[in-house]
Amino acid sequence: MTARTAFAVIAFAAALIAPFVVHSDFWMGFLITTLLYAYMGMAWNVLGGYAGQVSFGHAIFFGTGAYTSTILHISFGLNPWLGMVAAAVAAGLVGALIGYLSFRYGLRGSYFALITLAFAEVFRILANSFEFTGGGVGLYVPLKIGWWNLQFPSKTGFYYLALALTCLSLAIGAWLENSRFGASLMAIRENESAAEALGVNAFACKLKAIILSGAMMGVGGTFYAQHYLYIDPTIAYGPGVSVEVLLVPIIGGLGTMLGPLLGSAVLHGAGELARRLMGDVPGLDLVFYGVLLIVMVRFLPEGVIGLLRRRHKPGAAHA
């Protein structure tokens, strides 16, 4: 067993017993948020990190997922677990739509980023004005506690679900790093026309990536709605989620398997620390994110994982 697998096994074991050790609801909530964002950070990472298609509007998938399962549950009594599947499908479809429109017409870089931002804003405004989304008032998920109803009696249930999602996201990262699909995405990120010259169908690959990314975010949206039992247009489609899911992999390490997990831990850990030190000033988190982003891009462009790699393999080729 290498040091790396040993470390992975210990970390996983620690994650499994955490709920028996951590008794405060606050810290359980902290862990759940960290894991959920590790998962959603990977969702963003599939498209932004591996395929290099940076999105500023990933909340569109998150919000679509949250509204899909919640509306289906309230209006048609659909079980939220099935709602979670429906959320993945709906968010994946939205991904297919945005991807088709953007990639067919060759939108790249900041143009693509702005299109995603614009789409998320449009959805936020629509959610604000329709009745079936509850308009600006939002929607309350009816309280019916029970695991079959995706409402757990304590934080522990949500914790394990978030842990499972995080493990799923790590598996997806590992798959991308060891598959043809992942290799194609990275080639597209590095140089799209060179990739096409070597037979990569860039349009199809980017479309698949945005569908996978969107579907993953949609599941995150359902998780959020079931956990907090409430959503409104700003929570669902506002810039908060969009910014956080892109910060997480940027901080941890873009286009890497462990980046989102590390990034989420650092982001939420440092965020909590800042709150403790400076109190709960409104808007402080946004200032904090901004500063963190500038520091990361300036001093650690490869993210936390780049720092770890440099430590472990001095002189190794990681450009």
Partner: peptide
């Protein structure tokens, strides 16, 4: 037009 961040092996594997 190399894939700069990838290794030589990974480049050719594409």
């Amino acid at each position: 037009q190399p894939f700069g961040a990838l290794t030589v092996r990974e480049n050719i594997a594409v």
